[in-house]
């Protein structure tokens, strides 16, 4: 049975991108016709190992899968929420299961900034600087009510009322502090965003130069 290899743009292209429709991975689709279409059982070396040997797809899709499954967070805790973030990273909750264990100490090696804790005016400058040192693509998770809205420090004279005043945020995880399960759920949501390419940093880049210096910057 000789079937022409599909070219890109074919209806059987397993690569729905752009954020619409579910992601279908072909060997899980359960459609044997689809498999046969790829020459599955006629492989010259008989190389049928339960998986497709050749998957016609877009490099972007593969890159997104890789990105989503090895998001390395920046090791940067601001206050109380950081303890729960550490608890999420260690044995009991073990965020390593989702490819997120190596908390990088350098922003140059990090993909996601988990803002864990209260952001003060004095820390705003350094944190924006960290964010800008991270290579793109990058994502930001606001952990705790302090970073989502100011939380219990809503009336304080020295607290930034929500981290989205100084940088784009992809996922908000409320709670004071959020339970580790809450943070893990937030990271699952972030995986979806990454796969669907819906990160906020793009709009952030489009907006042009931002303010990088603050009243309380380090001197």
């Amino acid at each position: 049975m000789a079937v022409d290899r599909p070219t890109t743009g074919n209806a059987t292209d397993p690569m729905p991108t752009g954020g619409h429709g579910p992601i279908v991975i072909p060997d899980q689709a359960g459609d044997s016709d689809l498999l046969r279409e790829f020459g599955m059982d006629e492989h010259p070396q008989g190389g049928f190992h339960g998986l497709l040997e050749v998957i016609p797809t877009k490099a972007d899709y593969i890159l997104d899968l890789i990105r989503a499954n090895s998001l390395w967070p920046l090791l940067s805790g601001l206050s109380c929420c950081a303890i729960e973030m550490m608890s999420t990273a260690t044995s009991v909750n073990d965020i390593d299961r989702f490819g997120m264990f190596p908390f990088r100490a350098s922003p140059r090696q990090a993909d996601v900034l988990i803002v864990a804790g209260t952001l003060t005016t004095k820390m705003a400058g350094p944190l924006v600087r960290l964010w800008e040192q991270m290579p793109e693509p990058k994502w930001c998770v606001a952990m705790g009510t302090c970073t989502t809205s100011g939380g219990r420090f809503k009336r304080s004279y020295s607290v930034v009322q929500g981290v989205d005043r100084v940088m784009p945020v992809d996922v908000y995880v409320p709670g004071c502090p959020p339970r580790p399960e809450g943070l893990i759920y937030g990271m699952m949501k972030l995986h979806e965003l990454v796969k669907e390419r819906r990160g906020q940093w793009r709009t952030y880049v489009d907006r042009g130069p931002q303010r990088t210096r603050w009243e309380g910057d380090v001197r």
Binding site: T121, K122, G150, K154, R155, Y157, W214, E215
Partner: peptide, 30 residues
């Protein structure tokens, strides 16, 4: 506070706003 800050926040005449998000400072400036 940072070295160029010019108020003394613990004094009685330093009054907190009801909601800092409403104030002209909008949270990014003391």
């Amino acid at each position: 506070m940072s070295p160029d800050y010019r108020s003394f926040p613990q004094r009685r005449d330093f009054v907190l706003p009801d909601d800092a998000a409403d104030s002209s400072a909008a949270g990014v400036r003391p």
